[in-house]
Simulated scan of single mutants.
Amino acid sequence: MIAVNTLQQLAQAIEQTPLALREDTQRLKAFLPEAGLTCCSDNDIPGRAKPAWQGTGFDLYLVDATAHCASLTNDLTIACGVVLALHDDDD
């Protein structure tokens, strides 16, 4: 489970992080001590997926690993991780 305020704090920290350093998930891991944090390009996210949070230059997606394979979810109660999807310059 990931709390809404945890997601908000993570998003604020990302907003305050210079663009060149946003891929460094180790700097942001303190906001999710018991959950995973992965970074990718927003082009790597399926088009039908809806972000749990939209920020300037990034989106946050929630990961559900309750089934055999991990998938994206918008349900904070089953989320076990977050994907930081960075927007490309041409987006």
Rank of each mutant, 00 (worst) to 15 (best):
1 M>K: 04
2 I>S: 05
2 I>L: 02
3 A>S: 11
3 A>N: 08
4 V>H: 08
5 N>D: 14
5 N>G: 00
5 N>L: 07
5 N>Q: 12
6 T>K: 03
7 L>H: 04
7 L>K: 00
7 L>S: 04
8 Q>F: 10
9 Q>Y: 07
10 L>E: 09
10 L>Q: 06
11 A>M: 02
12 Q>D: 11
12 Q>W: 04
12 Q>V: 05
13 A>Y: 10
13 A>P: 05
14 I>H: 06
14 I>D: 04
14 I>F: 09
15 E>V: 05
15 E>D: 14
17 T>E: 12
17 T>I: 11
17 T>C: 13
17 T>V: 06
17 T>L: 10
17 T>H: 10
19 L>D: 14
19 L>I: 12
20 A>C: 13
20 A>Y: 15
21 L>D: 15
21 L>I: 04
22 R>L: 08
22 R>D: 12
22 R>C: 10
22 R>T: 12
23 E>D: 14
23 E>T: 11
24 D>E: 15
25 T>M: 02
25 T>E: 07
26 Q>D: 15
26 Q>Y: 09
27 R>K: 15
27 R>H: 13
27 R>M: 13
28 L>F: 09
28 L>C: 08
29 K>F: 00
29 K>Y: 00
30 A>M: 13
31 F>I: 05
32 L>A: 06
32 L>F: 09
32 L>R: 04
33 P>G: 08
33 P>K: 04
33 P>T: 12
34 E>D: 15
34 E>N: 12
35 A>W: 01
35 A>D: 06
36 G>H: 02
37 L>C: 03
37 L>H: 10
37 L>M: 05
39 C>G: 08
40 C>P: 01
40 C>I: 07
40 C>R: 06
42 D>K: 06
43 N>K: 10
43 N>E: 15
44 D>M: 08
44 D>P: 04
44 D>E: 13
45 I>M: 00
46 P>T: 05
46 P>Y: 02
47 G>D: 15
47 G>Q: 13
49 A>K: 00
51 P>K: 04
52 A>R: 01
52 A>G: 11
52 A>E: 02
54 Q>A: 09
55 G>T: 07
55 G>N: 06
56 T>D: 15
56 T>Y: 12
57 G>W: 13
57 G>L: 05
57 G>A: 11
59 D>W: 01
59 D>F: 04
61 Y>M: 01
61 Y>T: 00
62 L>N: 03
64 D>N: 10
64 D>P: 00
65 A>P: 01
66 T>C: 06
66 T>M: 07
66 T>W: 04
66 T>A: 07
67 A>E: 13
67 A>G: 14
67 A>L: 09
67 A>K: 08
69 C>L: 07
70 A>E: 01
70 A>G: 10
70 A>H: 03
70 A>T: 09
71 S>K: 01
72 L>N: 01
72 L>F: 14
72 L>S: 02
72 L>T: 06
73 T>N: 01
73 T>P: 00
74 N>K: 05
74 N>M: 01
74 N>Y: 08
75 D>T: 06
79 A>M: 00
80 C>D: 13
81 G>V: 01
81 G>W: 00
82 V>Q: 03
82 V>T: 07
85 A>Y: 13
85 A>G: 09
86 L>S: 09
87 H>W: 15
87 H>Q: 15
87 H>A: 14
88 D>Y: 08
88 D>W: 07
88 D>I: 07
88 D>P: 03
89 D>S: 11
89 D>A: 14
89 D>T: 12
90 D>P: 02
91 D>H: 15
